[in-house]
Design a binder for these strands. Structure first.
Length: 419
RNA sequence: CGGGGAUUGGCGCAGUUGGCUAGCGCGCCGCGUUUGGGACGCGGAGGUCGGAGGUUCGAGUCCUCUAUCCCCGACCA
């Protein structure tokens, strides 16, 4: 993509009211636009990042056998009355509205009910289980106070996966697989150093604990207590002596940290399968309730968290897998040889299947460098009189301050698609 | 939902006790000079001051109501 044709541009100022670092940077760099509190539109570069995060998540869910579907955002009241969760005292963040033809509907806050109901049409035998089903969808929650930029929205993108097992033991197996896949996701997203498996309250989903992936950041909403040696944490909401001894943790080894919940996985047991009568016939011809699990991952929130914690004073820093492009290509100056060389390299990179954002604008070097840094694209490639004279290009990783000169062939050999 | 702050061109802001054609910076358009870290000169376009009502000869400025945004708290399935 050429920057001269990209309709967005970076800003020098950000709204004073926007204090969350993630929102400030993403708005400044032209990745998102705020529509209202907790509701953001994604612009071309931001949409690429969001899609890339989604891609990584889907790949990992698919590896463990996740089957992707897409449920509906419009939810009929009747479905949620089965579990009592239509009641505003139970779920107080519904966006509810009426159909012109009569019924009452809500915008999906989560999807346990519809999926459990749906599976009644397909799960009848022990031979139909186990199964992982997931979707990536916009969720709507009427938060009293949206805040922290992308980290607590009223409309946000979430991957929610559900597991369906025959027995508690089978559920545990699925749970462990899902947990591992989450660890791979956070590793690929560059968050693993700061993300910890955390035991938390089961909330209204479960009478047992729930488990969260908490990424340490000052802008987080949760407080966790981390045992660095054991690499596990406890959410403040369940911190007490009983829980600690159950988890084998000692108070004196714990470090108090602020964190943001980027993922949440837990056992639903038969909480939903019972009311919806989602049963299967066992080998010995007995009707048994399906054991369910739930695995959430806030994709747009993760994007906010990454913007928040991986950035530096110059701007965003995207991990390679999710960056909007691999290279930020700059032509320096207006000499025709330079521009020609840069244009040629741009074409070559496209031919080689390397994503590149080409800053072909007629602006000063400083502005291009500043935007290159701000955008967080992993590698900056500069074509100038100097590089043209030596028949080389200049390469600089986003976080490095030392550019290196190398030939175009070497560049492509290093970064091109391996066939 | 409680408390605090805010709303003035696309963005960031200023606008004294009410007073004349509402300013500044960024960005934008044109011409020229520049070109390895957000350059400069000259000339332009663009706002009716969140909304509604009121006080007044006169309201961006005062009063009432209202909407929205931000922060702290509560909430967070």
């Amino acid at each position: 993509m050429k920057l001269s044709t990209l309709f967005t541009k970076s800003k020098k100022d950000v709204p004073a009211g926007e204090t969350a670092k993630n929102a400030q940077l993403l708005i400044k760099a032209g990745f998102v636009e705020k529509e209202m509190a907790g509701v953001y539109a994604y612009l071309p570069l931001g949409k690429k990042v969001l899609d890339n995060i989604t891609r990584v998540v889907k790949e990992e869910m698919n590896i463990i056998g996740g089957q992707e579907i897409s449920l509906t955002a419009l939810q009929p009241k009747e479905l949620w009355e089965v579990t009592g969760r239509w009641n505003d005292d139970v779920i107080d963040v519904w966006f509810k509205t009426k159909l012109n033809s009569g019924g009452e509907i809500g915008l999906g806050v989560s999807h346990e009910e519809p999926l459990t109901a749906l599976l009644k049409n397909y799960i009848t035998s022990y031979q139909d289980l186990p199964v992982f089903i997931y979707q990536v969808q916009t969720k709507f929650r009427n938060e009293l106070r949206a805040k922290s930029g992308l980290m607590r929205g009223r409309e946000f993108l979430m991957k929610d996966m559900y597991s369906f097992a025959r027995t508690e033991e089978e559920h545990q197996k699925l749970f462990t697989e899902a947990k591992k896949s989450y660890e791979r996701v956070f590793k690929r997203l560059g968050l693993s150093d700061k993300t910890f498996f955390t035991t938390a309250d089961g909330g209204m989903f479960s009478s047992d604990f729930s488990y969260e992936f908490q990424t340490v950041t000052d802008n987080g909403e949760d407080i966790i207590y981390l045992d660095r040696d054991k690499n596990i944490a406890v959410n403040e909401e369940i911190m007490n002596d009983e829980v600690l001894s159950k988890l084998g943790l000692k108070k004196e080894n714990l470090e108090q940290l602020k964190a943001s919940e980027v993922g949440n996985i837990f056992n639903l047991g038969t909480k939903y399968s019972k009311p919806f009568e989602l049963n299967y016939l066992s080998e010995d011809n007995k009707l048994e309730p399906v054991i369910m699990g739930c695995y959430g991952l806030g994709i747009s929130r993760v994007m906010g968290v990454i913007a928040e914690i991986l950035s530096d004073d110059k701007g965003l820093v995207w991990p390679e897998e999710i960056a909007p492009a691999r290279f930020y290509l700059i032509n320096l100056g207006s000499d025709s040889e330079v521009i020609e060389a840069a244009n040629e390299l741009y074409k070559r990179l496209i031919d080689e299947g390397i994503e590149v954002l080409y800053d072909d604008r007629d602006v000063h070097a400083g502005e291009k460098f500043a935007d290159a840094d701000l955008s967080g694209i992993p590698y900056r490639v500069v074509i100038s009189n100097k590089t043209v004279a030596q028949e080389k290009v200049e390469l600089k990783p986003r976080l490095s301050s030392e550019p290196e000169l190398l030939s175009i062939d070497k560049l492509i050999e290093t970064f091109g698609v391996k066939l």
